[in-house]
Computed example of a mutant assay.
Amino acid sequence: MTGIADGRVVIVTGAGRGLGRAHALAFAAEGARVVVNDLGVGLDGAPGAGSPAGRVVEEIRAAGGEAVAHGGDIATEAGAASVVATALETYGRLDTLVNNAGFLRDRMLVNLDEDDWDAVLRVHLKGHFLVLKHAAAHWRAETKAGRAPCARVVNTGSGAGLLGSVGQANYSAAKAGIVALTLVAAAELARYGVQVNALAPAARTRMTERTFAETMSAPASGFDAMAPENVSPLVVWLGSAASAGVTGRVFEAEGGRITVMEGWRRGPTAEERARRTPAEAGETARKLLARAESPQAVYGAES
């Protein structure tokens, strides 16, 4: 290992399993002290048995690293505040926040209950916002006290939030919101020495069992493209001082592939210095669409 995260204190939410666990272990292997947050709920957000956060802490310590578990609900004001407080009280500082916690409640749109909508947006979007808010408040206070931080935030998006995904309207909306939150936070927090980026990962986890059903089994030999550990190196780099100057960007990471995503940009435009009729507006729109690039397909849509 290179020690790229030596001395940094890192919070990883939803770090008891899957991608979050892989990120926590990767940061620890690179010299970071890690706050491992996980509420220990099931795939649908219902309470689960055991303490996955505690088990990850044990793994890190067994390998010679430093870590502490946090079992609070980061989608509440108290839980978000306490995970930041845990980092500060345990290690005296906070350098990196990796927002990763989430779960799924997939339904086709017409079958999607209000509770399913609220629960998914709560943990993904509200959970990202609240922890980011409390971390940012700390970094702002540090800046005002003359201790300019070298802070990093990595938010977890999804291809579903970039292109949409059939049967995942709630999840897609939450992940799209995370991208917008990332862009705003990057702009607002730059003055405090904070860089904010988002990552859309693809890996084999509990949440992706159905999505990647055909590639769930790791190969007997060779490169396991769907292993969560393939995503973590980019997360660690984004969460380290080595990523200086990179902020407000969205990446995709899957297997050995890293992609810089290029989001909404103004395309073909037509301007008229008079009010159009609906028919004229439609004719103009048709002409512009003929010159525009076709959007990429929504995940799961019939071709």
Score class of each variant (00 low, 15 high):
residue 282 G to Q: 01
residue 45 G to H: 11
residue 260 V to Y: 05
residue 76 T to A: 07
residue 139 W to R: 05
residue 269 T to H: 05
residue 1 M to D: 13
residue 79 G to T: 13
residue 58 E to H: 09
residue 132 L to A: 13
residue 112 L to P: 09
residue 158 S to Q: 10
residue 64 G to A: 07
residue 178 I to R: 02
residue 13 T to L: 12
residue 246 V to H: 10
residue 169 A to C: 11
residue 39 L to Q: 14
residue 58 E to T: 11
residue 299 Y to H: 11
residue 256 G to A: 15
residue 153 V to F: 14
residue 21 R to E: 05
residue 41 V to Q: 12
residue 279 A to P: 01
residue 86 T to A: 14
residue 237 W to V: 02
residue 179 V to S: 06
residue 34 V to Q: 10
residue 184 V to N: 12
residue 119 A to P: 03
residue 96 T to Q: 00
residue 150 C to K: 15
residue 276 R to A: 00
residue 169 A to S: 14
residue 150 C to E: 15
residue 147 R to A: 15
residue 93 R to Q: 09
residue 249 R to G: 04
residue 231 V to R: 14
residue 258 I to T: 11
residue 82 S to V: 06
residue 41 V to M: 10
residue 299 Y to W: 05
residue 285 A to W: 06
residue 94 L to E: 04
residue 100 N to Y: 04
residue 129 F to C: 07
residue 186 A to E: 04
residue 202 A to M: 12
residue 253 A to M: 14
residue 3 G to C: 03
residue 75 A to G: 10
residue 52 P to S: 08
residue 288 L to A: 03
residue 27 F to V: 05
residue 141 A to T: 12
residue 49 A to L: 14
residue 228 P to E: 04
residue 280 E to D: 01
residue 47 P to I: 02
residue 191 R to K: 15
residue 58 E to R: 07
residue 107 R to W: 07
residue 219 P to K: 10
residue 121 L to N: 13
residue 78 A to D: 13
residue 220 A to T: 11
residue 106 D to Y: 01
residue 299 Y to E: 08
residue 281 A to D: 00
residue 102 G to R: 04
residue 280 E to A: 00
residue 216 M to F: 13
residue 29 A to D: 11
residue 270 A to H: 10
residue 241 A to C: 07
residue 43 L to C: 10
residue 105 R to N: 05
residue 175 K to T: 03
residue 24 A to R: 07
residue 26 A to H: 11
residue 82 S to I: 03
residue 43 L to D: 15
residue 7 G to W: 13
residue 69 A to P: 08
residue 31 G to Q: 07
residue 169 A to F: 00
residue 181 L to Y: 12
residue 181 L to F: 13
residue 20 G to S: 02
residue 242 A to I: 04
residue 232 S to Y: 10
residue 110 V to M: 15
residue 46 A to G: 08
residue 209 E to L: 12
residue 109 L to K: 07
residue 265 R to S: 08
residue 87 A to H: 01
residue 107 R to L: 02
residue 218 A to N: 13
residue 185 A to W: 09
residue 69 A to W: 01
residue 226 M to K: 10
residue 285 A to Q: 08
residue 283 E to K: 13
residue 6 D to Q: 12
residue 176 A to Y: 06
residue 19 L to V: 08
residue 62 A to G: 15
residue 77 E to D: 15
residue 147 R to Y: 10
residue 197 N to V: 09
residue 28 A to H: 04
residue 98 V to S: 05
residue 19 L to E: 04
residue 46 A to W: 02
residue 283 E to C: 01
residue 88 L to I: 02
residue 194 V to G: 02
residue 176 A to V: 01
residue 132 L to G: 15
residue 49 A to K: 05
residue 116 D to G: 11
residue 9 V to Y: 01
residue 20 G to V: 06
residue 152 R to D: 04
residue 228 P to I: 11
residue 274 A to F: 11
residue 207 M to Q: 05
residue 255 G to N: 11
residue 255 G to V: 01
residue 295 P to K: 01
